[in-house]
Design a protein around this nucleic acid. Sequence first.
DNA 1: AGCGTCGTTGCATGCGTATGCAAAGCCGCT
DNA 2: AGCGGCTTTGCATACGCATGCAACGACGCT
Lengths: 335, 335
Amino acid sequence: MAGERRRATAVDVARLAGVSQSAVSRCFTEGGSVSAEMRTRVLEAARRLSYRPNAIARSLTTRRTNLIGVVMGDLDGPFQPYLFETLTRGLASRGKQPLLVRGDPADALDGPAMAALDYQVDAVVVTAGSVSPAAIRGLMALGVPLLLYGRAVEADGVDSICCDNPLGARLVAQALVAGGHRRIAYLGGRPSAFSEQERGSAFRAALAELGLPLAATGEGDYTYDSGHREALRLLAGPDRPDALFCGNDAMAFGALDAARTALGLRVPEDLSIVGFDDVPMAAWPSFSLTTIRNPVDNIVAILLDMLERRLADPDAPTVLHRPAPVLVRRGSARL
Amino acid sequence: MAGERRRATAVDVARLAGVSQSAVSRCFTEGGSVSAEMRTRVLEAARRLSYRPNAIARSLTTRRTNLIGVVMGDLDGPFQPYLFETLTRGLASRGKQPLLVRGDPADALDGPAMAALDYQVDAVVVTAGSVSPAAIRGLMALGVPLLLYGRAVEADGVDSICCDNPLGARLVAQALVAGGHRRIAYLGGRPSAFSEQERGSAFRAALAELGLPLAATGEGDYTYDSGHREALRLLAGPDRPDALFCGNDAMAFGALDAARTALGLRVPEDLSIVGFDDVPMAAWPSFSLTTIRNPVDNIVAILLDMLERRLADPDAPTVLHRPAPVLVRRGSARL
DNA sequence: AGCGTCGTTGCATGCGTATGCAAAGCCGCT
DNA sequence: AGCGGCTTTGCATACGCATGCAACGACGCT
């Protein structure tokens, strides 16, 4: 009963049950036309042989694999694993299997990174922020539905969902100014990232509307280390900023540590720090980070709905969602 | 050239190149017998049609999918994403695709969690610490190589690799005692986890050998929150411990925050805290956590070697590796 | 009794690729 | 020239399953 050298096939089950292979197939297919008696006989035989339909063979005929290509970068920071966790759980609960496409496919469209797509994925979801437009075009050419998270692309047949970054940046600017800050600095992420472009320019614009220039600017790459490094630079000189808005939470953690541990500053008394994303860690007492909540659960739910809709009707009109983030007030900023 | 409704098949390429389908197949197969002229003609035709072999169809005939089932629990803490990242990168670099099996399959051997295995994975790697022995037996019955990380199981045909937890626990006990601590507490993880059983009992035994009883004990579940909660309990009463060994880093972070923020203790002056795993975050200035390094890179490399060896020869002798961890001295403990 | 309808079953085929086998071509050798 | 051996190629088939089609039987209707 266990550890057979070869797994049982539908033919084996059919022989044992004394029916045809098609009958077995129909018993395991949604909406198959089978009598009650037939079903019990087949299922009993299947049970005895520990039979489970071969998803590979099934996919070959149905032209549906239930595999969803998931393009993502590193799982380094705290945000990506959180997103990945939510997304894969959601896919699984809808009977889809995520198939990981690792690495920045910017220059690897025919490289080993894309090998996953040879498995005939039903759709591709891109969550990596740094995928180049060229790579996106390459993915579009696959002839498979393409869903984008974290960037707003206006292209036919490409659905996307992306937190309203400009709104988030405006919320921070308004709150900081209302809180009495006057020397406000900005620490941006990877300049090539879509989210960075939106957050940075919107923050700048919002401050300008409020009559303030940006006191200082840093350029990080969304990692803790870059946040630490840039914060040291921004906060070390004279005319120290009294507030720092970071392009994501990971950099905010780095900046927080740099300010408190390396520079001996009090947060938020000497310096207000605000992040973006609201990863679970932001609520830890050590950080108690004031930040913009990027509503991941909500976004993933919408993303999955978009996916199902697109799979059901490849010609449905393209959609672009921009859910609104909110400001989460904690202890790292005087607001 | 882009966005065809149907992807090109080997037959399409063959027709365009004026050769047989087998010839096309051989051009894309390692060690296929093809002349140079034939290869260039076929590859040119393939390029023009954007042809890539269908991995699904290929798997059906070769009985090799290059898919590796990866059983893991939540990606919540800092350790699991780190391990997952390393493992999936390693698999990809060896031409394998990870196929995620989510959730604790303890009670879901025929549930949707196991649906991934219907894709005829070549092997299964279990990294979830809480998979029940019954589930392990179920996986063994699949007739597919089974590799276990983080638990030492002596079973025929099951390879495993697991950090030497008893050694790690002993290192901590010795260092704490040598550092002058006398009231030493232990905060364990999920009792059902193999690692917890080893770490807890070895720590207790090592302290006993050094002539010290355990001052106090807490029971967490490897999460930050449980570390925070249990630390509050352990450190609030009279006769406060002067050292706390936590079953993993995540709980140590929670304990650290509880001690410093909620209880106003100085670390390491009032209290030494030691973790286990050495996740990247442990090196952050805020934590500067003294901990036991669970050599993930090393472990994954060995795991991948074991996997390749097992795939090459299903009847090779079973192996069990127990790499030695080391103590990483940082700022959270007086040692 | 005769007919049409519907539910159930088996037969045959196709999905896209890999591969054993035989045929064909080429080489060098005697 | 004739032969054996090697390389290259095509033909045919198999992998495990889903599904269109036809066959069959049961049933209700007139």
